[in-house]
Amino acid sequence: MKIIRLHTSDEAVIKKILQGDSRAEKQLYDRYAAKMLGVCRMYIKDMHYAEDVMIEGFTRALDNLGRFRFEGSFEGWLRRIMVRESIDFLRQRTQLYFEDITEVEVAPVITDNQDMDAELLQLLIDKLPEGYRTVLVMFAVEGYGHKEIAEMLNISENTSKSQLFKARKQLQEQLGKVRRIENER
């Protein structure tokens, strides 16, 4: 009986790519492109720009695939590339602005009993300024610490904390507005 393997591991696909197999490149793209576009979209409001950044990030990842050491997950490695590409994009367009404030602690935003869908969440964070949104997504979604965020964005740890504080505050205000609109209905 012949066993047909339906799923090839990332490692096997990467090794094929390193041997010059262009079909394996496409296979890797099909596997991760949609997820990575989702990552870029969190940082960049405009969908077309987000796709441009995803394409640049994927090209860079394929060009530097030889540097991947198989020590962690490939998805994590690719995700980091996408985050860096997104940050670079925002920097180039001078959309990334950080302001320092003194208060640095605020409680996470509680959403009562609401289980919000992804589109609404995206809408909420899209309304935040670039600097707030970037720090919030890096902290809450990607799981980076303030030290790491500070290094990646070339800012101080306190600035990172203050950006998160502001982001949370604004999110709280926006949620209040959403609740009011829902109550009116």
Binding site: A33, G38, D117, A118
Partner: peptide, 22 residues
């Protein structure tokens, strides 16, 4: 349903969101 932290929702829903490219 328990109250949920908005940041947890962000991580769960946006962190794993897939958008099909063109």
């Amino acid at each position: 349903m328990k109250d949920r932290n908005l940041e947890q929702q962000l991580a769960d829903k946006l962190g794993n969101r897939s958008i099909t490219p063109s």
